[in-house]
């Protein structure tokens, strides 16, 4: 019961921090909308089909969702380190993963909101819609995507605690994730080696299912894609279990966490 309360408090505090943070609005609102505008201008070049414009309608939202999901986990660790509270968090009886669970869930809530302004911008600014939306498949795909983002964020968080450079590396590779996960164009457009790398990323499969649920054309192997995304997410969680153990040892045995 106390673990649930601790996770809930971490969730509430993260939501409150996000509401008052200007950075937060940049991640889930401004930044994705700027990408949506560029995306829709480019994708609508030469009278594009509506199936192509779908990538502009949802792409900005996906970018915002991902940015918030991984940023919340990563930044929360860095913020604690910079504020000198990281060691206190590790010294509390509550396991670190419970606190991060609350933080990541709060990020996912904010990230989901990111779809709304971008879809509105696409509709009112560019008259772009989702041409053949299958609501159930769309909702399930979004749920699977949320699970994959959740697992990745939870897995990445201990990396940020262990190595300070891990966050700057992932930050630098942020647009690489957009490419490999097919946020704004299908990964079929990529070189075959890049498609291989994309295949081991859980969001790639969930995003594929999400887009397929909005158009008539192309393959619609939803079950396979959902299972691939869920399976990979579970693998990430198994990796996270090992990493959290490593972080605990680093924090309690060597005492070098704040110096990482």
């Amino acid at each position: 019961m106390s673990l649930i309360r601790a996770g809930w408090r971490a969730f509430v505090i993260t939501i409150r921090m996000r509401v008052i943070s200007t950075w937060s609005y940049l991640s889930w609102l401004v930044f994705p909308m700027l990408f949506t505008i560029v995306g829709l201008y480019v994708l609508s070049s030469g009278g594009a089909s509506s199936s192509r414009l779908v990538y502009g309608v949802l792409g900005g939202g996906l970018i915002g969702y991902w940015s918030v999901a991984y940023l919340d986990a990563g930044n929360s660790i860095q913020d604690e380190r910079w504020s000198g509270t990281l060691e206190q968090i590790f010294a509390t009886p509550t396991p670190i993963w419970v606190i991060l669970f609350g933080k990541v869930c709060a990020g996912l809530v904010f990230g989901l909101v990111s779809f709304l302004p971008n879809a509105a911008l696409a509709y009112f600014g560019f008259h772009a819609v989702l041409p053949a939306l299958d609501p159930w498949k769309f909702v399930i795909s979004l749920g699977v995507l949320t699970l994959s983002f959740f697992c990745i964020a939870l897995t990445l968080a201990p990396l940020f605690a262990l190595w300070r450079w891990a966050f700057s590396m992932l930050n630098g590779f942020e647009l690489g994730v957009y490419i490999l996960c097919g946020f704004m164009f299908p990964i079929a457009a990529l070189a075959s080696w890049a498609q291989g790398v994309a295949g081991v990323l859980a969001p790639t499969w969930a995003v594929r299912a999400l887009y397929a649920s909005t158009v008539m054309q192309g393959p619609h192997d939803f079950t396979l894609w959902w299972l691939a995304a869920i399976g990979l997410s579970v693998v990430y969680l198994a990796g996270a279990y090992f990493l959290y153990g490593l972080v605990e040892r680093e924090a309690r045995v060597s005492g070098e966490l704040a110096l990482a």
Partner: peptide, 21 residues
């Protein structure tokens, strides 16, 4: 991170987007 990965992935993202469109 900031001088190689970020610039190169930014170019690649928009080139791939443009090539697709």
């Amino acid at each position: 991170a900031y001088k190689l990965l970020l610039p190169v992935t930014q170019i690649l993202f928009f080139v791939e987007l443009g090539v697709y469109a």
